[in-house]
């Protein structure tokens, strides 16, 4: 990306040095973000790595210990209230009312965002149809399935057509089929111009994002588009097949040039540092003539490479 082009990019979220401490525990450490408008951006990382805390900082829910945030071109500090009309937030935990029906929940959220009368009615009908909740309209939210709850939460978070949407692990309680459907809706929203920030610990979901940040212990370990991350990965992937792979794994992981070895089905997937010039030969030598082939890197490989203390060099 040339500096010329980047000047024209409008950012929905800009953050520099964003830090949040809870006592001695640093939940988010010097996070820098530049998320272009109209894109889907992912936070990928295990539980406790600071995804929710980062989102809470960016929505103004939590006060940052340090750092600056600009949301939709306005500094967050001092503009929290006016920005609230322009952002939507779907919390990790279901945050609507279990003992209200789907329709009542939507009615409530609609009124909160200043919708009334015909305008509210037609918007709610539109959302019920879009998120396939028409049959559940009179059902209590608490009695719905994970997928239905999640669609209701998304409907509520997007009721006021926000320009920027935060989704905190939206699909963690949802089956794969519903997850695919859900992502279709996200791409629809994105096509309509909404910027989406979504956190996840699923690799396949992260792969659908335009760009993502890999997070660990409050630090951003790497960021970029999935393809760029895979291309820039400082490791080569070799797949070894044969017998006694568990034993081979033991010997391989002790080698300093080898970042990781993980058994996947009948293969051993080995990540070797880029500085090893002939990775195939290197592995063949170590694995007593078992079959070795070069493999395409996956996002998981990127994740493994840059976390767990392996990101250093």
């Amino acid at each position: 990306m040339t500096s010329n082009a980047s000047e024209q990019i409008e950012y929905a979220i800009e953050a520099t040095g964003l830090t949040k401490r809870f006592g001695d525990n640093i939940a988010v450490n010097k996070l820098d973000l530049n998320i272009p408008k109209g894109s889907i951006y992912g936070f990928l990382g295990p539980n406790g790595c600071g995804k929710s805390t980062s989102i809470r900082l960016l929505t103004g829910l939590l006060e940052a210990s340090e750092g600056d945030v600009t949301i939709l071109g306005k500094p967050l500090l001092g503009h929290e209230e006016s920005l609230k009309k322009r952002i939507g937030y779907m919390t990790q935990k279901f945050s609507l009312y279990d003992n209200l029906t789907v329709k009542e929940n939507l009615d409530f959220v609609g009124a909160i965002y200043g919708f009334a009368g015909k305008r509210k009615k037609s918007r709610i009908e539109e959302l019920l149809a879009l998120y396939d909740l028409e049959k559940q309209a009179k059902q209590f939210a608490g009695s719905m399935s994970g997928g239905q709850k999640q669609r209701l939460a998304l409907a509520c978070a997007t009721l006021h057509s926000p320009e920027l949407l935060f989704l905190d692990e939206p699909t963690s309680a949802v089956d794969p089929e519903n997850r695919r459907e859900f992502w279709e809706r996200l791409f629809d929203l994105c096509a309509a111009g909404t910027t989406i920030l979504v956190s996840t610990h699923y690799m396949d979901e992260a792969e659908r994002c335009h760009a993502l940040a890999i997070m660990e212990d409050g630090n951003k370990r790497a960021d970029g588009s999935p393809q760029a991350l895979m291309d820039a990965m400082p490791a080569t992937v070799v797949e070894v097949s044969g017998n006694k792979l568990r034993q081979l794994k033991q010997t391989l992981t002790q080698h300093p040039e080898i970042l990781s070895a993980a058994q996947i089905g009948a293969h051993l997937r080995v990540l070797i540092k880029k500085k090893v010039l002939d990775p195939l030969g290197f592995i063949s030598e170590l694995s007593d003539g078992r079959e070795t082939i070069l493999a395409r890197p996956s996002l998981e490989d990127v994740f493994v490479t840059c976390t767990g203390g392996r990101h250093g060099d």
Binding site: R56, L61, Y89, S95, L96, C156
Partner: peptide, 13 residues
């Protein structure tokens, strides 16, 4: 306790 507040805070209420 029920987590409703986290959503409410991000609305104009």
């Amino acid at each position: 306790e029920h987590g409703n507040m986290e959503f409410l805070i991000t609305t104009p209420v």
